[in-house]
Design a protein around this nucleic acid. Structure first.
Length: 547
RNA sequence: AGGGCUAUAGCCAAGCGGUAAGGCAACGGACUUUGACUCCGUCAUUCGAUAGUUCGAAUCUAUCUAGCCCUACCA
C-alpha cells in the first residue's frame, strides 16, 4: 500500500531495525475522544498503520482520555467506526485511563526521587511565576517541600481533600529553561468530575505531557508519531521516559500538519458549524469529517491514496482540494455504473417515432470495465435531454451538441435531427421537435455519416423523477482563514436540481454509486424518502468546455 | 532572555557531494457512442538570499531573510 516515495520516518524505522535499536515496530493512534475524526486525522491513522505495516509491525488504538471534562463515549464509538471504515484493525484498543494506577505510581516515584512536588500556587500566580518567552521563570515558594510532605499532600489530593485548582503536582525540572515546557510543568491536576471510563475512582488526572510518554512506554510503543507543534514537548517526553524507570524507550517523532484548500479542519470551528446549525450535523455531506465524507460518497481507498500521495514531511502543507477530487475520480472510475440522468430537462418529441411504442436499447454500464455488464434503456417518442445540450443556432464549429438542423447521436440509441423549436409567448424554448433515422441504431455498424456529437437522454414516460444535490466544499475562499470563517462559507454549497433518471435506477440501493453521463459521480442519499430518488453529487467530472 | 522547526515549480513531493524523479493543476495535440476516460507533448539551466569549501554543492560551512510553533491546572 505504501507507495515508493520514501519518507523520513520510514527511513528512521528502517535504520533502527537494521542497527538493532528496536526489533519490531509498534505505533499508536491516540485520539482524544472529544470530536469526530476528520481528514486530517485520517493522515495520522493511515500513516501510523501503513508505516507499521511496512515492517510487519502493528498499531494500537489508544483513547487519550486524561481530561474527562471534554470527553464522551459518543466519540469513542464514532472513532472506532471511522477507523474500521478506513479498513484498519488495531492490534489493541486501549484507554489512557487503563493506566491511571500505573501513572499514579510513577508520580509517587518522581516525588520519592525529589523530582516532583505539590504546589499551592493558584493558576494565575503559577502562570506569572512561569515567566515568558523573554524572561526566565522563578521557582515557586513551595518548590522545596520535603519528600515526606509532598507524599502526604499528593495522597490527600488523591483522597479528595482539596477543591479543583487548589493544588497541583509539578515536575521539578528547570524554571529558567528557554523551553517553557520544561519550567516545572504541572503533571497532575485536581478535577472532581466523573470520568466516562473510570467513573468516580479518581479526582486527580494526569496531564498529557506526563501521561502520554508513560502510556507509550507501558504499551511498548516503539515510535510515537505526532504533529509538529509537539516538537517543543519532546525534551519533556524524554525527561519522563528517562526518569520514570520504565522498561520501554518509545521515541517521539513529529511531522507537519496537513491542510487542504477550501476546507476548514479545526475541531473548534467544526463544532461551531454543528452547534449553530450551519450544517445538519457532523455527517453533513459538506463536512470534512470522515462521516461527512463517507455520506458524500467518498471511498476509503480514495482517501488512502490521497494521503499516501501527499507524502510526509515536517512542512505544514496545504494541498489543493483538486488533488483529493482526483484520487476520488480515479477510484470511482472503474467501479461505478454509468446510467443516464437529466438534471435540467428539455423535452424532445421524435415526430417520426410511433407514440405507442417503447423500445429498449442496450447500454454498456462502464466502457472501461466490461465486467459491469449492460442494462436495457428505454427509447420512445418523447424524451428529455439537458437544456445545456441544445442551442437554437450552432454557435461555432466546436459545438458538439444539438442545434436546429443539426444531427447528433443519442448515446446508445439513434441519430436525431432537430427540425423545429417550440417557444412560449416570451420566447422561451419549451420543447423541440426532431426526427430520428432508424438506420443509425447503436451497434448497427452504421457509418455513412458522422453525427455532430453525442448527447445523453432519458425516455419521458418511463423516467423517474429525481432530485440532485450538488454539493460544493463548505469553504470556497482561496485560503481558509479562521477569522470570520462563518461569513466566508460558500452560500452555494448545497444547490439542488429537479430532473429525471432512467427507470433502471428504481432498484437502486442507498449509497450505491453512479457516474451519470457528463454529470459526474453521484451516490443515492441514504435518507432519500418520498416519490423522488435523491442523489448526492460526490464529485464532478473534469470539463474545460464553455459554450 | 529567548527557544525550537521549516524553506526544491501555482500546490504537494523525491533527492542525503556527481550535474533537478513523480503526482495534482495548467496548456497544446491525438482519439472517442460522455467536451469524460485514455494516449502523446509542454511546464525549475536551478533548489529562500548571499558568501565560502570543493574538480564538482539543492546536498557541507557561515551569515542573512521569510514563515510556523511555544508563556493551558487542553491535547
Amino acid at each position: 500500500m505504501m507507495n515508493d516515495n520514501s519518507n523520513f520516518i520510514k527511513t528512521i524505522m528502517k535504520n533502527e531495525l537494521e542497527n538493532g535499536v528496536v526489533d519490531h515496530i509498534l505505533t499508536r493512534f491516540p485520539p482524544e475522544p472529544n470530536a469526530y475524526l476528520h481528514i486530517g486525522h485520517a493522515r495520522a491513522i493511515i500513516m501510523n498503520f501503513e508505516l507499521a505495516k511496512c515492517f510487519n509491525g502493528a498499531t494500537n488504538l489508544r483513547f487519550d482520555d486524561t481530561n474527562p471534562s471534554k470527553e464522551d463515549t459518543e466519540y469513542v464509538d464514532a472513532i472506532k467506526k471511522d477507523i474500521a471504515w478506513l479498513g484498519y484493525e488495531p492490534k489493541a484498543i486501549n484507554y489512557g485511563s487503563n493506566y491511571f494506577d500505573a501513572t499514579y505510581e510513577k508520580a509517587l516515584l518522581l516525588i520519592k526521587k525529589n523530582l516532583a512536588y505539590v504546589d499551592d500556587l493558584d493558576q494565575e500566580t503559577l502562570a506569572k511565576y512561569r515567566g515568558s518567552i523573554n524572561e526566565p521563570g522563578i521557582p515557586s515558594p513551595y518548590r522545596n517541600r520535603t519528600i515526606e510532605e509532598n507524599l502526604k499532600l499528593f495522597e490527600e489530593m488523591r483522597m479528595g481533600k482539596y477543591a479543583n485548582g487548589e493544588k497541583t503536582l509539578r515536575a521539578k525540572i528547570d524554571m529558567s529553561s528557554p523551553n517553557i515546557n520544561l519550567r516545572d510543568p504541572v503533571i497532575y491536576r485536581i478535577m472532581h468530575i466523573t470520568h466516562h471510563q473510570t467513573k468516580d475512582k479518581w479526582c486527580i488526572y494526569p496531564m498529557y505531557d506526563f501521561a502520554h510518554p508513560l502510556q507509550d512506554a507501558f504499551e511498548g510503543i516503539t515510535h510515537s508519531l505526532c504533529s509538529i507543534e509537539f516538537e517543543d514537548h519532546r525534551p519533556l517526553y524524554e525527561w519522563v521516559i528517562n526518569n520514570c524507570e520504565v522498561e520501554a524507550k518509545p521515541r517521539q517523532i513529529e511531522w507537519g500538519r496537513l491542510g487542504i484548500t477550501h476546507m476548514i479542519m479545526s475541531k473548534r470551528y467544526l463544532k461551531q458549524l454543528v452547534d449553530e446549525h450551519y450544517v445538519t450535523g457532523y455527517d453533513d455531506p459538506r463536512m470534512p469529517t470522515l462521516v461527512g465524507l463517507r455520506r458524500r460518497g467518498f471511498t476509503p481507498n480514495a482517501i488512502k491514496n490521497f494521503i499516501l500521495s501527499t507524502g510526509l514531511s515536517k512542512i505544514n502543507s496545504t494541498v489543493d482540494y483538486g488533488m483529493l477530487e482526483h484520487f476520488l475520480r480515479e477510484d470511482l472510475k472503474l467501479t461505478t455504473t454509468r446510467p443516464m440522468a437529466i438534471l435540467n430537462p428539455l423535452k424532445v418529441v421524435i415526430t417520426n417515432y410511433p407514440s405507442d411504442r417503447i423500445e429498449y436499447v442496450d447500454a454498456v454500464n462502464n466502457m472501461e470495465n466490461e465486467s459491469l455488464g449492460t442494462h436495457k434503456m428505454a427509447f420512445g417518442r418523447e424524451i428529455y435531454i439537458e437544456q445545456e445540450d441544445f442551442c437554437e443556432v450552432k454557435p461555432n464549429k466546436h459545438w458538439k451538441r444539438l442545434a436546429k438542423d443539426v444531427e447528433v447521436r443519442l448515446m446508445h440509441a439513434y441519430f436525431i435531427k432537430c427540425n423545429e423549436v417550440i417557444k412560449d409567448e416570451n420566447g422561451n424554448i419549451i420543447e423541440i421537435h426532431c426526427t430520428y433515422d432508424p438506420k443509425t441504431k447503436s451497434g448497427s455498424g452504421f457509418n455513412e455519416r458522422k453525427p455532430n456529437g453525442t448527447i445523453h437522454y432519458v425516455e419521458a414516460t418511463t423516467a423517474l423523477k429525481a432530485r440532485f444535490n450538488l454539493f460544493e466544499p463548505l469553504i470556497m475562499d482561496e485560503k481558509v482563514s479562521t477569522q470570520n470563517f462563518k461569513e466566508r462559507l460558500n452560500p452555494n454549497s448545497w444547490q439542488t436540481c429537479e430532473g429525471f433518471v432512467e427507470a433502471v435506477l428504481k432498484d437502486t440501493k442507498p449509497m450505491d454509486k453512479y457516474q451519470f453521463i457528463r454529470n459526474g459521480y453521484y451516490t443515492t442519499d441514504y435518507q432519500a424518502k418520498g416519490d423522488k430518488l435523491v442523489f448526492n453529487r460526490i464529485v464532478g467530472l473534469k470539463s474545460s468546455f464553455t459554450a
